[in-house]
C-alpha cells in the first residue's frame, strides 16, 4: 500500500479499508504494521455484536439495525462471519445476501469473513477488522457471528453491546437457563415474532432472567420482539442499544469492559505467537513419529507432549 494509506483509510476510502482488512486477515508483518499505525485512531466506535443460532435472522436484523443508524446519520461498518469448511478450507459467505437494502450507500461498509479454522464464533482477525473500521470512522460497527450454538461466546469479549437473537420454538425454559450464550446477552431478541410460539419463547427467557436475584444497578437484559423481515420492533432494539451504551458510560463500566477486552486480546495474541514460535521450533518428523506411537497406543498424549516440550 502507498505511504498515504493511513490518511486515506481514515477518510473511509473503501478500497483502502478493504485492502487493510485483507492484510489483517492474512496476518504476519503487514498486519502488525497496519494495526500498530491505526491503533491510536481506534476506540471511538460503538461495537455491537449480533449472535444466535443459524437461521434465526441475524443478518436480516443487522440490515434493519444498520438502516436505523443510517437514518440518524451514523456511518455503519459490518463484519459478517460465516464458517470455513473443515474439509476444503473454503467457505460460503452468504450474509450479504440479506443486507441488500444497504447497497449503494457510501456510509455503509460490509465485509464477509470466513472463520478460517477458529472456533468461538468469530474469525481470528475479526477484532482487527473491527479496528480497521473503527479507525476508518465508522461510528457503529456491527459484528455478526457465525450461526452460534451454546458455547460460541467470544463475541461478548469483542463487543460493547451483545444482542442474542432467538427464534420461536427453539427450546423450553431449561434451555433458557443453560450457561453459555444466554448469559452474554445485553439484549435478548425474539425474532420471527409473528410465529405462534413467540410468546412462549419470550416467557421462557423472562423466567430465566427472573430467577436471578436482583442486584442494585445491575443491567437486566430486555427481552424484545422483532420481525426483521418487516422491520417491526427494530426501533425499540436500537433504543435499548442506546440505553445499554448509557449504562456502560456510567460508573466507569465501559473502562472496565475495555480493560477486560484488552486483557483477553493480549492473552490471545501472546498465545498465538507462542504457538507459532513453538511450531517453528518443533521438528516435524519428530511430531509424526509421536503421532504414530500415540495411534499405536505405545505412548499417551501427555507423555508425548512432554517429550516434545521437555
Amino acid at each position: 500500500m502507498n505511504s498515504d494509506w493511513l490518511e486515506r483509510l481514515r477518510a473511509g476510502e473503501p478500497r483502502v479499508v478493504a485492502r487493510a482488512i485483507s492484510a489483517v486477515e492474512r496476518g504476519g508483518a503487514d498486519a502488525r504494521t497496519i494495526i500498530t499505525a491505526l491503533f491510536r485512531f481506534t476506540g471511538r466506535a460503538h461495537i455491537l455484536g449480533v449472535t444466535g443460532a443459524p437461521g434465526t435472522g441475524k443478518s436480516t436484523l443487522v440490515n434493519e439495525i444498520a438502516k436505523h443508524y443510517r437514518r440518524r446519520g451514523h456511518r455503519v461498518g459490518i463484519v459478517a462471519v460465516d464458517p470455513t469448511s473443515p474439509f476444503s478450507g473454503g467457505a460460503l459467505l452468504g450474509d450479504r445476501l440479506r443486507m441488500q437494502d444497504l447497497s449503494g450507500d457510501g456510509g455503509v461498509f460490509i465485509r464477509s469473513m470466513a472463520t478460517r479454522g477458529s472456533l468461538g464464533g468469530l474469525a481470528a482477525a475479526t477484532a482487527d477488522a473491527v479496528k480497521v473500521l473503527d479507525a476508518a470512522g465508522f461510528a457503529i460497527v456491527l459484528i455478526e457471528t457465525v450461526g452460534a450454538g451454546q458455547n460460541e461466546v467470544d463475541i461478548a469479549r469483542n463487543a460493547h453491546t451483545t444482542l442474542v437473537v432467538e427464534a420461536p420454538g427453539m427450546g423450553d425454559d431449561i434451555q433458557a437457563i443453560k450457561a453459555g450464550i444466554m448469559e452474554i446477552a445485553d439484549l435478548l431478541i425474539v425474532n420471527k415474532a409473528d410465529h405462534d410460539a413467540a410468546n412462549a419463547t419470550m416467557a421462557a427467557l423472562e423466567m430465566n432472567l427472573n430467577l436471578k436475584p436482583k442486584l442494585e444497578n445491575d443491567w437486566r437484559p430486555p427481552v424484545l420482539k422483532t420481525i426483521a423481515t418487516t422491520g417491526e420492533g427494530v426501533a425499540t432494539v436500537v433504543e435499548w442499544i442506546g440505553k445499554h451504551r448509557a449504562y456502560l458510560e456510567t460508573n466507569r463500566r465501559l473502562e472496565t469492559r475495555e480493560r477486560a477486552r484488552a486483557r483477553a486480546e493480549l492473552e490471545l495474541v501472546v498465545q498465538r505467537e507462542l504457538m507459532a514460535r513453538l511450531r517453528r521450533g518443533l521438528n516435524g518428523t519428530r511430531i509424526e513419529a509421536l503421532v504414530e506411537q500415540i495411534a499405536a497406543r505405545q505412548v499417551d498424549v501427555y507423555t508425548a507432549a512432554e517429550k516434545l516440550l521437555g
Partner: peptide
C-alpha cells in the same frame, strides 16, 4: 458457488 467452496475458495454469494 458450492463447487468453489469445496475447491477451498471463499465464495461471497449475493
Amino acid at each position: 458457488a458450492r463447487a468453489l467452496r469445496d475447491a477451498g475458495m471463499e465464495v461471497i454469494y449475493t
